[in-house]
Amino acid sequence: GKRLNIQLKKGTEGLGFSITSRDVTIGGSAPIYVKNILPRGAAIQDGRLKAGDRLIEVNGVDLVGKSQEEVVSLLRSTKMEGTVSLLVFRQED
């Protein structure tokens, strides 16, 4: 696979993607993946982020050990017109 650095500018329609966690172990944390890209928002305008990408970092914060809720609040904490920096891991087909 490969790592991608993606910067998304948060506009009025938001970042435009949803996340999910897979393989949750009890008391553990699961990897966070991009669930889908919404028809409006920064992600589809940028065009690089894809469903199935694994989020590794948000704005330089390592997501290991973070819950899905914590990751959502990290993403939401970005101000309007601010930039969210994502490091994602993509499995090659």
Rank of each mutant, 00 (worst) to 15 (best):
E57C: 07
S77R: 12
P39R: 07
G82H: 10
F17M: 03
P39N: 15
G11P: 10
I6Q: 03
S29W: 15
T20E: 06
E81I: 04
Y33Q: 06
Q91T: 13
V72Y: 08
E69N: 07
E81S: 11
Y33R: 04
R40L: 09
S85F: 08
K66N: 04
S21I: 09
V71C: 14
K50G: 05
Q45H: 13
G1C: 09
G41L: 01
I56K: 03
G14C: 02
L87A: 12
I44V: 09
N5W: 10
P39G: 15
I56H: 04
K50H: 11
L15V: 04
G60M: 03
V72F: 07
D53Q: 00
G82M: 12
E70Q: 09
L86W: 00
I44H: 11
E13L: 07
G41Y: 01
P31V: 07
L74E: 06
Q7H: 15
T83E: 09
L15E: 01
I56P: 01
I19N: 02
V64H: 07
R54V: 09
K35E: 15
D93S: 13
T12I: 12
V71N: 00
V72N: 12
L87G: 13
Y33E: 08
L15T: 02
S29Q: 11
E69C: 12
K35V: 04
L86Y: 00
E69Y: 09
D53C: 00
I26H: 13
T83N: 08
Y33S: 05
G60S: 10
Q7G: 08
N5H: 13
V24R: 07
T83C: 05
T25L: 09
I6D: 00
K79Q: 12
T78F: 07
I6P: 00
G11Q: 13
G41P: 02
S29V: 09
R48M: 04
V61F: 06
Y33I: 12
I19G: 03
R76V: 12
V61G: 03
G1W: 06
V61H: 11
Q45Y: 06
G1H: 04
G14R: 02
N59S: 04
G1A: 05
Y33T: 06
I37E: 00
E69A: 08
K35M: 05
T12N: 14
T20D: 09
Q68P: 11
I37T: 01
G65K: 08
G52W: 07
L74R: 04
G52P: 01
Q68W: 10
I19M: 05
S29R: 09
T25K: 07
M80K: 15
K35N: 07
V71P: 02
L38Q: 13
S67P: 11
I19T: 05
D23F: 09
L38Y: 13
G1N: 15
K50Q: 13
N59V: 00
Q45G: 05
E57I: 04
V71W: 00
R22E: 12
N5K: 11
S67V: 06
S73H: 13
L75M: 07
G47C: 02
I26S: 14
I44R: 09
T12W: 06
L49T: 01
L49S: 00
A30V: 08
F17W: 02
G14N: 07
I56M: 13
K79P: 10
G41I: 01
S73C: 09
E13N: 08
Y33P: 00
V61A: 06
L38N: 10
S67M: 08
E13R: 07
E69S: 09
K2S: 08
R22L: 14
S73Q: 11
N36C: 11
P39T: 11
Q7R: 15
L38A: 12
K66Q: 11
R48I: 05
F17P: 01
E13A: 05
I6E: 01
S18A: 06
S73D: 10
V71K: 00
N36P: 00
V71M: 03
P31G: 08
P31H: 12
A51V: 10
D23S: 09
S21W: 08
N5M: 10
Q91M: 10
V88Y: 02
A43C: 02
K35C: 09
I6F: 02
E70H: 07
S21A: 05
L4E: 05
V24Y: 14
V58F: 12
R76K: 15
G11F: 05
T25I: 11
G47H: 03
T78G: 10
E70L: 06
R54F: 05
Q7C: 11
D62R: 10
V88R: 01
L63S: 02
P39H: 07
G52A: 05
S85Q: 11
F89C: 09
I26R: 10
G1T: 11
V71T: 08
Q45M: 15
R90Q: 06
T78W: 05
D53G: 03
D93F: 13
V64T: 13
R48L: 04
R90E: 01
D93Y: 07
T83H: 09
A42N: 03
G82W: 05
R3E: 15
G1Q: 05
E57Y: 04
L74M: 12
R90C: 03
S21F: 09
D23I: 08
G65S: 08
G1Y: 15
I32S: 03
I56L: 13
I44N: 08
D46I: 02
G60L: 01
S73Y: 09
K2Q: 08
T78I: 15
V61T: 14
I6C: 01
Q45S: 14
A43K: 04
G60Y: 03
